[in-house]
């Protein structure tokens, strides 16, 4: 017998089928009068920054004004013209090390916890983590209240990877002092488009 068979047999014997799956649609989950406002407040609370793109404002100009010092910028978004590295064209993900700014798109935001759903839409997803600073473009009408709504909405493409990101990488592992910028992006700026 393989270990798989042994384990499954043992579990089948032990699992008595006694408990039914509970109803989950009846969870009275938090909703907000203004989900966008709540999303912005939560994002700030988790260490992120939220900026609105004004009507007629050029996204590249806005990003430049936010990161005047960024030299190496990586993005595969067609509307981003200031990028000098395209993560779709990078052969070895390690080449993205040293990226000052990564610019990616988020599908929707979650008001209760500041999470943004980021399905992988580039060959090298490392750009979402390895960049010193991360900018996420997020359509302002795409905000859900809570994770129940969020998990009804997420979808995957062929890359088979997606992540919720809520603010910058952080740690309190040294003496419980909160420090932004552990192993991944040191700052996260959400631009509402």
């Amino acid at each position: 017998m393989t270990s798989k068979e042994r384990i499954l047999n043992k579990c089948a014997k032990a699992a008595d089928g006694a408990f039914a799956m509970p109803e989950l649609d009846d969870i009275a989950a938090v909703e907000y009068p203004d989900p966008l406002k709540q999303f912005c407040a939560t994002s700030e609370a988790v260490g992120g920054k939220v900026v609105e793109l004004a009507d007629n404002q050029d996204i590249n100009e806005l990003v430049r004004s936010l990161f005047p010092e960024a030299r190496r910028i990586a993005s595969n978004l067609t509307e981003i013209s200031i990028a000098d590295t395209n993560p779709d064209l990078v052969e070895n993900a390690c080449e993205l090390n040293g990226t000052d700014l990564g610019i990616i798109r988020g599908e929707f935001g979650v008001a209760e916890n500041g999470c943004i759903w980021i399905p992988q839409t580039m060959k090298q997803r490392a750009v979402c983590f390895i960049s010193e600073n991360l900018v996420i473009l997020l359509p302002r009408q795409n905000i859900v209240n809570n994770m129940h709504e969020a998990y009804k909405r997420i979808s995957f493409n062929d890359y088979g990877y997606g992540t919720f990101i809520s603010g910058p990488s952080k740690t309190a592992d040294i003496a419980q002092v909160l420090v932004m910028g552990a192993q991944a992006a040191r700052s996260v700026t959400v631009i509402l488009i």
Binding site: A45, V46, G162, F164, S166, G167
Partner: peptide, 13 residues
Amino acid sequence: PSTTYTSHFRKAR
């Protein structure tokens, strides 16, 4: 309210 990253791995990268 959430960890910073909630990552879903489905396939080889």
